[in-house]
Design a protein around this nucleic acid. Structure first.
Lengths: 330, 330
DNA sequence: TCTATTTGTTGGAGCGCTCCAATGCTGTAA
DNA sequence: TTACAGCATTGGAGCGCTCCAACAAATAGA
């Protein structure tokens, strides 16, 4: 199981180890004849360079460390996919671990990544304190996803949750709605931004905001609606905290004999695969998850290459996806 | 940005580099006094060992390579999560890349992982030909997930798709159903197993199988049902290819004025987050995704440690999750 | 013709670590 | 006293590679 080394290839090809190194790195100053001899020998022996030895000797790294706070979450899985796309295109490898939402575990995860002296670090939805972020950033170029930070050593990439809620409100207003309530995401990440965006948009339109406490689950969405039903005058439209919350809300509405969208329009948030099902067909706000990943990857690569030293704080524009749960006010 | 090395720590602590190495690896034969001096020096300098240098020098690796054919797929994301759990517990790191469902890209992905001389390799849903699998397995202990192989050098971990469909049929039969059709998954992975399981279970109960061609999407599920509606006598129950297919089927049934489960029982497959939504509340078959990941991780660790040399072919038992889309035949 | 320059090739040092044989040391038995 | 453990500690070789200075050979310029 012991694999051939550069030394072995050199011996078979009848050249020096240094020449093999040049060939492996595609140096132009190698004669065609020798290059062929080396490649043949490598092929014959089944040789491929040892990435760690190369990294050690060259004092460079092609590894990007990725800490995912929660891989269960489809959002992060798609972000990783976006980072991976850039990494593959630019010749980097991803080394991933997860933090399990606990600051202590997350810290250990980040240190585990740093032990590989990665070229860069991407932290997806980290829950560690800012000092830990600063510490990480001092060891390797770092990009933060789904968490903002004012630290000037960190790049950040985020969805503009405020703008997203604004889009939802604008859409409903354009359909003639004026009584629009928001089912709040509570402690969920991005929930404050979404609430602020909702309130700001309502005020911009001269309407009165109405925030119903809820959470990022379908159960909570249903509960919030049942509560709303017992509270006097109903709104004609809902801006839900996210898609799950929206689906819960819709089923509670239907149970109460209200039809969506005839009696109530509902907008979700996230454009999960759920929203696209024809059975659900939910009007929602699309967060460009893959794009977020790609931008995070690109930000990292730029820093690693020294093409940029200024921090980048990117706020991505979400977009409205109109499906069948919204219609003009009757 | 250049980090301290063992040499630096040794100088500060006033000991040799070798002693620092012993301390870092928790050797028992180091005096308390020196150990403390070393740890203090390390702390002061912010030193942490260089994982790649360690790996190179010790000729061992703590890296597990994971090739995911498709990270978009929630199934694989959860499997990775399971592998990660074992890896963290056993002191391994995961290095991940994706194959994008193309054999050529997948091959490159696997070679990229092998360049790091990982201790083991996990291939999740690979589409490469068996020879490539054999090649990979000859370089590092390898476990295959969501793909079977008779190769004796490979461990495999799979869900028992045949048993899963069998559970669905048994459940429906126990509810008094005899006209049970299967919406087939076509070219989807595991679809043949599910079909075979359905047919075998029907025959076991002395019933006539009826397979309707379809696919793993809600659109296809709806289409298959519309086709079924125009084809004479209806079954009273459906075993769908997967959850998405089932949801599509249900919405087509409802559009046609049939109620689920009163007029038609429907069973899904996969127990995705979708199925659990109260709005959907789909009776389905649960694949132990996390468990699959854990077992894959464990299989790998065992091989890496040399605790086992025999190949392991694990077939996990899926389980039935009864929700609201099935009821006794009226 | 002889010296410069270019081109292709090579040996060796070194990346940060581990591991082994060898070292000095203290304590105990003869 | 000498011999011999037993123990903590150390120097050095080496993991597989890169990179640099040095080199021989071929080419160009005078």
């Amino acid at each position: 199981m012991t694999r051939p080394t550069m030394e072995d290839v050199a011996r078979v090809a009848g050249v020096s180890r240094a020449l093999v190194s040049l060939v492996m790195n595609g140096s132009p100053k190698v004669s065609e004849q020798r290059r062929k001899a080396v490649l043949d020998a490598a092929e014959q022996l089944g040789y491929s360079p040892h990435a760690m030895a190369r990294s050690l000797a060259s004092r460079t790294s092609t590894v990007l460390g990725v800490m995912v706070s929660d891989l269960h979450n489809a959002f992060f899985a798609e972000v990783v996919d976006g980072i991976d796309e850039v990494a593959q295109a630019e010749g980097f490898e991803l080394i991933i671990n997860t933090g399990g939402r606990s600051p202590a575990r997350e810290r250990r995860a980040v240190n585990g990544l740093l032990a590989f002296r990665p070229a860069g670090l991407a932290l997806l939805g980290p829950v560690v304190p800012p000092t830990t972020l600063a510490e990480a950033a001092s060891q390797a170029p770092t990009v933060l996803v789904a968490r903002s930070s004012r630290l000037s050593t960190l790049d950040t990439v985020n969805d503009d949750g405020e703008a997203g809620s604004g889009l939802a409100v604008d859409h409903l207003v354009s359909l003639g709605h004026t009584e629009i309530a928001h089912l709040d995401g509570g402690v969920g990440s991005q929930a404050p931004q979404r609430r602020r965006g909702y309130i700001a948009a309502m005020q911009r339109h001269g309407l009165t905001p109405r925030v119903i406490p809820s959470e990022y689950t379908d159960i909570a969405g249903a509960k919030a609606v049942r509560q709303l039903l017992g509270q006097g005058p109903l709104p004609t439209a809902l801006v839900a905290a996210n898609d799950f919350n929206a689906v819960g809300a819709i089923s509670a509405l239907e149970e109460a004999g209200l039809r969506v969208p005839q009696d109530m329009s509902v907008v979700g948030y996230d454009n999960t695969s759920l929203a696209g099902l024809r059975h659900v067909s939910l009007t929602t706000i699309d967060q460009p998850r893959h794009e977020i990943g790609r931008l995070a990857g690109e930000a990292l690569v730029q820093r690693v290459r020294g093409e940029r030293t200024e921090p980048v704080k990117r706020l991505l524009h979400p977009s409205l996806v109109v499906r069948s749960t919204t219609q003009a006010r009757s």
